[in-house]
């Protein structure tokens, strides 16, 4: 399954939006954190898990989804949220802790929930899997269209939650697709030292579903495999497990000195940065530089508007902390 030109450009645009957004977040995050790094300072306090480098997986999968479909995501959720269509302004405002944010500042960057596009995420490793099964079950029981996609990291594939959810999905043949972003690092521990198998796609066999491995951090290859899996789910043929190789260009969180990385690894990863690679590919396929430049400019202004909106928004009254525990 190959993307149309329109789909390719959509993937490119969302990759660029995601990257530019994270560059802007990174810059804002560092404000107020020098000379001594203190996570609690600055306009964006707390942990920050950037997803730059991992954009291909999010766009290759979400290119097949519409607003009715469900995505449950991880503690590293920006690229997935953007690809699923979460409002960028409200997401930025949430990360800045503002009243106009998705939850008015109660959740922050690891807890982005946007019911308008059926997006949610959890800061707990592996906990995207069960809720995706439940949302898929909901559609099955109600006989409503829609599939659920659970994103997780390769480290999460060692959590019990992942295995329980896969068994549930396999047993009930749920319209759900599990997508592992294999960035090869669980914070500082390499995949090989934490995982009994070389590739997690083989684990699908234990749960009665097909498994696919997608090498190369290649949006087109991911689009292809995810397209088949999602179509299969839509036809009621059950779940699929996909593991896609990807690259974490940043640390686990901002402030991570990444001393665990082998020398030269980061340089090699940046040399394989999927965004310039995709631009080259699109040019080779006949897109014009002007067309791609326009996409990049549009991404720049979308991100700039979102960051401005976030900065200019007010904080909610502090007593709002005491509300919305119950609806």
């Amino acid at each position: 399954m190959q993307p149309t030109k329109e789909q390719s450009l959509w993937m490119y645009e969302n990759m660029v939006v995601s990257r530019r957004f994270e560059e802007a977040i990174e810059k804002a995050y560092l404000e107020g954190k020098t000379p001594a790094f203190n996570m609690a300072n600055g306009p964006i306090p707390g942990e920050m898990h950037l997803s730059n480098g991992q954009e291909p997986v999010a766009v290759g999968v979400c290119a097949h989804l519409n607003a009715d479909d469900i995505v449950t995501a991880t503690h590293r959720p920006h690229h997935q949220a953007i690809a699923k269509g979460v409002d960028l302004k409200r997401m930025a405002a949430e990360i800045f802790g503002k009243s106009t944010g998705l939850s008015g500042g109660r959740g922050g960057h690891m807890h982005l929930i946007d019911p308008a596009v059926n997006f949610s995420c959890s800061g707990i490793i592996g906990e995207s899997c069960g809720p995706a099964c439940g949302a898929a079950l909901s559609r099955t029981i109600q006989n409503k269209p829609g599939v659920a996609v659970a994103f997780l990291g390769e480290g999460a594939a060692n959590q019990g939650a992942f295995h329980e959810a896969l068994n549930l999905a396999g047993t009930w043949k749920l319209p759900v697709v599990f997508v592992i972003e294999d960035n090869s690092w669980g914070i500082s521990v390499p995949k090989a030292e934490a995982t009994a198998v070389i590739r997690n796609d083989v684990r699908a066999a234990g749960y009665g579903m097909p498994g696919h491995y997608v090498p190369g951090n290649d949006p087109h290859a991911i689009f292809d495999v995810a397209g088949e899996a999602i179509a299969r789910a839509r036809k009621g043929e059950g779940p699929t497990l996909i593991e896609a190789e990807t690259y974490r260009l940043a640390g686990h969180f901002m402030g991570d000195a990444e001393q665990y990385r082998p020398k030269g690894e980061k340089d090699a990863l940046f040399a394989k940065d999927p965004i310039p690679k995709m631009r080259e590919r699109l040019l080779a396929e006949g897109c014009t530089a002007t067309e791609l430049d326009e996409i990049e400019q549009r991404a720049d202004s979308l991100v700039a508007d979102a960051i401005t909106f976030a900065r200019e928004s007010d904080y909610a009254p502090e007593s709002d902390a005491l509300t919305a525990v119950f609806v």
């Binding site: 069960g130 439940g134 079950l137 959810a165």
Partner: peptide
């Protein structure tokens, strides 16, 4: 873990 978190997902989806 599997079915209780599935219930969360189903509830958030309107069930």
């Amino acid at each position: 873990t599997g079915f209780i978190s599935a219930a969360v997902g189903a509830a958030m989806d309107g069930m």
